[in-house]
Design a protein around this nucleic acid. Structure first.
Lengths: 227, 227
DNA sequence: CGCTGCGTTGAGCTTCTTCAACGATCGTGG
DNA sequence: CCACGATCGTTGAAGAAGCTCAACGCAGCG
């Protein structure tokens, strides 16, 4: 089983014993999704959870008139839809593959069995959910207390730190998706990117963005400054 | 120890054995807070987590210019600040007692020890965090995809279901706090409440609110209708 | 070559916030 | 018992931020 070996590389499962990897590898299956394919819809029964193996997956909500708010974009090694496992409840949001992606799938019943007998797996899971919770709290804070330029600035700084920490960074999603992630629309995002460039704070070339005045960007992100 | 007996009544600890209650009661202490007293501030070291015994506690974020976004208002039996336990990280938000309140406090190290040896406690905790996560996802959805009337309508329906499920409900927080919970300001909330009354959808008398046209309220909450 | 998705720009409008003033209530201290 | 201040809630007028609608350029791809 090659699954077993690759499961061991998932951060969520760090620090487990070889036997535990075996168990995980035994219950896991791999699923393939095409770009744009729906992985599950809000309200569907949650039979288990996923971990991205390759590709990119968005988790999102839709309003009644079709507007989208992206909650997360997950890449390799990141779990999603764990909530369904621990509540035995329907998925609370939609999931779609942004590119051709493959995901491990862990069925609910088998996984909860593993947790019950593996305290360190339980602790890993608790830490993972806690991180998620903190991210959501941050998102709520941004949506409610910052304006779009502030959210964008914070996101660019986040991307910079996620990547090499330097001033040059790449967007891994389209600008329309970035807009949805920031809780706004493409038009508004486009205008604000233009403003940031005009003011010499960043330079943008397609998905390639360069931070020119990091200090001002940080002031924007913290809410000290305005555009 | 009276603590042990009362700890058993906390939903988070439902289904544990008497010995487990003993252990929990042993590590728990009780803390008293006055109305308006800060329980902890964002960024402070998280030495453990709390469960409300009596009173009411708000968890909130502040912007640089003092604007507040309430993330949660917790009442008796509800845990808060668990994230600090599982990440060993600083508190990600502020906590303040809205009334004279008392809380159980569970120190981090002792509690993680209990979790490691009590799978059902771990499962309870995972379920608790999952619920929290779902609530946050809902809040993000509301903030980003609904306008204030929709958020208010959804909250009133939520309160109705939380209470007796009937058409008569009470706000347990001030309207200024409700505004902060809904991601807006008191002025806006006041105007929208007035509109809802003028249109015969609700009747409001101070903290006492009566749903008159539940159908229209549901349409507002779902985004089908506008004011 | 034309289609489709992505991104940008402009004009107008809606929603919400800001600023200011004012009434009501409540607890406290004189 | 009353006066006072503080908190809370309401209302009005003006302004800002962001959304909607529409048009258009551009690139990739069948």
């Amino acid at each position: 089983m090659e699954i077993i070996a690759s499961v061991a590389a998932i951060p969520l499962f760090r620090g487990l014993t070889p036997e535990q990897y075996d168990q995980l590898g035994t219950i896991a299956t791999v699923q393939q999704f095409e770009r744009g394919q729906t992985i599950f819809s809000e309200g569907a029964a949650g039979a288990g959870f996923f971990v991205v193996q390759s590709g990119r997956v968005k988790i999102y909500k839709l309003s009644i008139d079709g507007k989208e708010q992206i909650l997360h974009v997950f890449g390799p090694g990141e779990p999603f839809a764990e909530v369904a496992v621990f509540l035995g409840a329907p998925f609370p949001a939609h999931a779609m593959a942004l590119e051709r992606s493959s995901c491990y799938f862990f069925p609910r019943a088998a996984f909860t069995g593993l947790i019950a007998s593996n305290p360190s797996l339980a602790m890993n899971m608790l830490a993972s959910l806690s991180i998620r919770l903190r991210q959501f709290a941050h998102m709520i804070e941004d949506l409610s207390l910052k304006e779009v330029p502030g959210r964008l600035a914070a996101h660019l700084l986040f991307l910079s730190s996620q990547q090499d920490g330097g001033d040059r960074l790449r967007l891994h999603i389209t600008k329309a998706q970035l807009a949805s992630l920031l809780g706004t629309i493409p038009e508004t995002l486009s205008r604000i990117l233009a403003k940031l460039q005009k003011q010499g704070i960043i330079a943008a070339d397609g998905a390639e963005i360069t931070i020119i005045d990091r200090e001002r960007l940080e002031e924007l992100a913290s809410g000290e400054a305005r555009l």
